[in-house]
Amino acid sequence: MNEMNIAELLADQLEKLLSARVNAESLAILEAGGADLSLWQEIEEMGVADVMRTGDDDAGLGWQDCAELFRVLGRHAAPLPLAETLFARRLMSQANLGIPEGPLALIDPSANADIQLDGSGCLQGEAAMVSWASWATQLLGLARRGDEAFLFSVAASDVAARLEQCDSLGRAPTSAVDFSGITPLAVVAMSDASQIRSGLAVMRALMISGACDKVVELAVDYANTRKQFGKPIGKFQALQHQLAEASCRAAAAEMAGKYACRELDNNQFLAGAAVAKYTASVAAKEVSRIGHQVFGAIGITDEHELHYYTRRLWQWRAEAGNERYWSEQLGNKVLAAGSEQLWSSLTA
């Protein structure tokens, strides 16, 4: 069985599992502070969380192989940090760090995280918003000392008393974490720290594309069943135009995400991530808007499932750099290359 078959099989198994186990009720339980640890255990037993590890005895699947896994997680607004754990275990295996059991939390460098590594090897500073910190066995992040960047891991037990719960649009477990004076479990110098932010951006872009697909699916189904003036509202051309735009935005986010996966597999960290996260963030905004316009008032009620996806779209849009941040990165890259490189960069 080749790598693509393994990836497709795992994505299919994950799709079936989440379809059976995740619904509006389970998402409401998560947002109320509950945790379905049995779902995490099932996923661990499937081996999904380890497929991006790069050790000699590991599957070592790349970003292109695992793109659909991330999209499935977004499509179901998965109530567990599998996406973060997939990427964190990949980073740890690449750095030859010991990988613990259980879920991992990743500190988003763009989320007001200013963490320094002092001369005694202790961390100083805090991260304003860390998703799933209260679930994690370890937290993984980026610290700086002068011009140097370091990947570090911290035991969750060492910061448990310092977690301060935060409110977020997605309402998933989110905490502010003060790392001052904490000695990390491991510290590894990074030659290119941009791979963390770029990887997080592509991960979120793929999840956004999956959630966009779900919102479009819900909106199309509702438009075909909700009747007004004697016919389904989906028969009205104005609504058809809106749904067509939402479908195009979702498709663009998917293609941009998969393009970025190819770039990451080729160790090109900036351009692909910028294109993917910019495109996906714009799609998140527009697909959410159209979805709520189709549903009207019912779409914002707690009883309806739509808001579980649209709120996460807005949350993921802001994480790992929003569209403004990534458009600036692309613009700076073009300006630095000079006008004579503009056409070739657009058509490459």
Rank of each mutant, 00 (worst) to 15 (best):
A161N: 12
S180M: 05
A156M: 10
S153K: 12
S157C: 10
D147W: 07
S153V: 13
V159G: 01
A161G: 05
C166G: 01
I182P: 00
V154W: 07
R145F: 04
D158L: 05
Q165H: 11
P173Q: 13
S175T: 09
G170K: 08
F179V: 03
G170D: 01
A176N: 07
S168L: 02
E148M: 14
L151Y: 11
F152G: 02
P173T: 08
P173H: 08
V159C: 07
A160K: 12
S168G: 09
A149R: 14
F179A: 03
V154K: 04
G170C: 03
D158G: 00
R171L: 10
S180V: 03
D158E: 10
G170H: 04
L185H: 03
S175Y: 13
S168T: 15
E148R: 15
A172L: 09
L169T: 06
R162S: 05
Q165E: 12
P173V: 06
T183D: 02
V159Q: 06
R145D: 07
G170Y: 10
S175P: 04
P173S: 10
A155K: 14
S157G: 08
I182R: 04
L185F: 00
G146N: 05
A172Y: 11
D178P: 02
R145H: 07
E164H: 09
L151W: 07
A176R: 12
G181K: 00
R162L: 15
D167T: 14
G181R: 01
D147P: 04
V154L: 01
L169Y: 05
F179K: 01
F152E: 06
D178F: 08
P173A: 15
F179M: 02
A156C: 10
R162V: 06
P173Y: 15
G170F: 02
A156N: 12
A156G: 10
D178I: 01
A176Q: 13
F179Y: 10
G170Q: 03
Q165F: 10
